[in-house]
């Protein structure tokens, strides 16, 4: 187990800059999720930590040792790839034992390690099968088994669940999280799915365009997004972000709606953010016209038009309205987010 430090890491492919100086500090035993839209450089960063890509600038240290010039096999890491990368010509047992075989471990140790991992992952009955004879979830488990038999200092996962169907994804999500808590191994997990990030991480690192937008605990990011990108990226359904300005004793959106501001609000505010779940039905609220009602059972999502501004609310109550009806809603003033003209959060 080890800490991982990424300091001012840069990556250049040919003449294209992919990472522009990234800093991440990962504590021993922490579960860190790198999240961001596709193409933002998450995999590249992970592969640099693994040693599969060289480092164009900056420094990466694992367990206090700078590994810039250390080959992958000597970094004491294990990686799970998106499409599992199981060796097709080897059985599950051989797949799991491969790294130990290369390290010339004694046969009884190998067998014991494989058995132990198989037991943890529920693969006992499948040890003699070939990867093609396994389902997606089972392959995923074998890939994880291959990682845990090595007792690495760091686990690296690159979108390991994106090839699974929705239900299995939720199940494997909790399995991975549980396993990580049991083994307490430092883990870096890449995903583009913010729900995965929120549910699994101790620390989330939100990336965009080769830069880190914000890093912190999931709820910290949810409660206090540092900028418009994080505000829009974390949370589902996404936060309403309404451009406008402070005027007329409230916030006047560009679409013409007048929204209430919390006391002492910064007059520089250029964007008003409110999460759908922080809007309440209120008789003294702002009046809007219903555009769409989407009940999910546990809550009802309503798209409203206030002036020219569209805003989404998510309510515990069952909203009876139909498109065209009027509805009054009020934001929870303590949960309003204000952003300045530069897109950063205002204090």
């Amino acid at each position: 187990m080890a800490t991982v430090s990424v300091r001012q890491a840069k990556k250049v492919f040919g003449s294209t800059k992919i990472l522009h100086g990234v800093d991440v500090e990962i504590a021993d035993g922490e579960f860190v999720v790198l999240v961001g839209p596709s193409g933002c450089g998450k995999s590249t960063l992970l592969r640099m930590i693994a040693g599969l890509e060289n480092i164009s600038g900056g420094e990466i240290a694992i367990g206090g040792r700078v590994v810039n010039n250390v080959p992958p096999k000597d970094r004491d890491i294990a990686m799970v790839f998106q499409n599992y990368a199981l060796y097709p010509h080897m059985t599950v047992r051989e797949n799991m034992a491969f790294s130990m075989k290369l390290a010339k471990a004694p046969a009884d140790v190998m067998e014991e390690e494989v058995k132990r991992a198989a037991k943890i992952l529920g693969l006992d009955a499948l040890l003699d099968r070939y990867p093609r004879q396994l389902s997606g979830g089972q392959r995923q488990r074998v890939a994880m088994g291959r990682a845990i038999v090595r007792h690495p200092q760091v686990f690296l996962f690159d979108e390991p669940l994106s090839n699974l169907d929705a239900k299995l994804r939720v199940q494997m999500r909790s399995e991975i999280k549980e396993l990580q808590q049991r083994l307490a191994t430092t883990t870096i997990y890449v995903t583009h799915d913010q729900i995965e990030a929120m549910t699994m991480a101790d620390q989330i690192v939100v990336m965009n365009g080769g830069r880190i937008e914000q890093a912190g605990a999931p709820l910290a990011l949810y409660d206090r997004p540092a900028n418009l990108f994080v505000a829009g990226f974390i949370g589902s359904p996404a936060m309403n972000l309404l451009p406008g300005r402070v005027a007329d004793g409230g916030f006047r959106t560009d679409g013409g709606a007048l929204l209430p501001l919390p006391p002492g609000a910064n007059a520089q505010a250029a964007t008003y953010g409110i999460r759908p779940e922080h809007l309440m039905l209120a008789d003294d609220g702002v009046e809007g016209t219903i555009v769409l009602v989407e009940p999910t059972g546990s809550e009802t999502q309503v798209t409203l038009r206030i002036g020219e501004t569209q805003i989404i609310g998510a309510f515990r109550e069952r909203v009876q309205g139909r498109p065209g009806d009027l509805l009054r809603v009020a934001p929870d003033l303590s949960l309003v987010h204000l952003f300045g003209p530069d897109g950063n959060r205002l204090p």
């Binding site: 040693g51 599969l52 992958p72 890491i77 990368a85 060796y87 491969f98 790294s99 290369l102």
Partner: peptide, 12 residues
């Protein structure tokens, strides 16, 4: 798949 080789590379 190149990933197989990368995986083997990490496996040592």
């Amino acid at each position: 798949p190149y990933e197989l080789e990368e995986c083997a590379l990490i496996d040592g």
